[in-house]
């Protein structure tokens, strides 16, 4: 017998040592230290950094709302970009997500659709925004298009996964009544996935709001342009004002989306 009874030898171990795991942790720590030294991190670098940071913070206060009209216009445009992008993004994601669901669709539809979704997900929204700015010119349209692509990449995948997790027993029963495919979707699938879809859509609105403040930096419209200009001109008090407005906008969005989720529970 190869395996000896541990009870007989008096060496019972409650927790088996995971040597491979420990080795992994040690390797990770060593790499972090090595990478840090390669990038020139040192104590002096930190202290000069802290000095810079101190001056930066001092110049930020108090926040400067004098040019509130500029901020207001920018934030309004960002909001519009986010809402439009979420609306069309979700609208397109519904059929895309359905077609990517492997339990309802044959492989020759679902796999190409998964490819499309992966393509939409493969770039950060900023890179997509740069592409659209170059392709169709400066302005909010480029920002909207970039965020639509980002939305499709993200929520189509979540939609598809939600559909793949439904109970097929309920679908089977609806199908057994002689219902057509559309009716099966409406009465058998939709009731099972609707609350999760609402959750994903509100989450995407939230995410698009944050991203819409950013696409302006590369010329995609919205508050990002004003923010970038303020940074460039070292108007750090204006920067702080814009940041405060963005934070409050995101918080309001959080409250609204929480409320929407409750309504559709």
């Amino acid at each position: 017998m190869i395996v000896t009874d541990p009870a007989a030898t008096g060496q019972r171990t409650a927790f088996a040592p995971n040597w491979l795991g420990r080795l992994g942790w040690v390797a990770l720590v060593i790499y972090v230290i090595y990478a840090g030294s390669q990038l020139g991190f040192s104590a002096e670098r930190f202290s000069t950094g802290l000095e810079h940071g101190h001056r930066f913070l001092v110049r930020m206060f108090p926040p400067n709302f004098e040019r509130w009209e500029l901020i207001y216009d920018g934030i309004l445009e960002s909001l519009q970009i986010a809402v439009i992008a979420t609306f069309f993004g979700v609208l397109i994601s519904l059929p895309v997500g359905l077609m990517a669901a492997r339990n309802l669709m044959p492989a020759w539809i679902s796999w190409p659709m998964r490819g499309v979704i992966a393509l939409c997900r493969s770039f950060h929204p900023i890179i997509v925004a740069i592409l659209f700015v170059k392709a169709i010119g400066f302005g909010a349209l480029a920002g909207v298009m970039a965020l639509i692509v980002a939305s499709i990449g993200f929520i189509s995948k979540l939609f598809a996964e939600a559909i793949e997790e439904i109970s097929l027993k309920q679908v089977e029963a609806v199908r057994a009544s002689g219902a057509g495919f559309l009716s099966v979707l409406i009465m058998g699938v939709q009731p099972q996935v609707l609350p999760r879809f609402i959750g994903f859509a509100t989450y995407q609105l939230d995410s698009n709001l944050r991203n819409s403040t950013m696409v302006g930096i590369v010329g995609g419209g919205g508050i990002g342009a004003a923010l970038f200009t303020a940074y460039q001109r070292f108007d750090f008090d204006v920067v702080l004002a814009i940041l405060i407005v963005i934070v409050s906008l995101i918080m309001v969005a959080e409250i609204v989306s929480g409320w929407a989720r409750r309504v559709f529970q």
């Binding site: 109970s167 027993k169 309920q170 089977e172 029963a173 609806v174 009544s177 002689g178 219902a179 057509g180 559309l182 009716s183 099966v184 409406i186 009465m187 058998g188 009731p191 099972q192 609707l194 609350p195």
Partner: peptide, 23 residues
């Protein structure tokens, strides 16, 4: 039973009419 859990009893009964009623 295979009822559609998130639908009402009435909606589940009407599922029996889906072969006759347009989507």
């Amino acid at each position: 039973y295979n009822l559609v859990e998130r639908l009402t009893v009435m909606e589940n009964l009407l599922c029996g009419r889906l072969g006759y009623v347009p989507a």
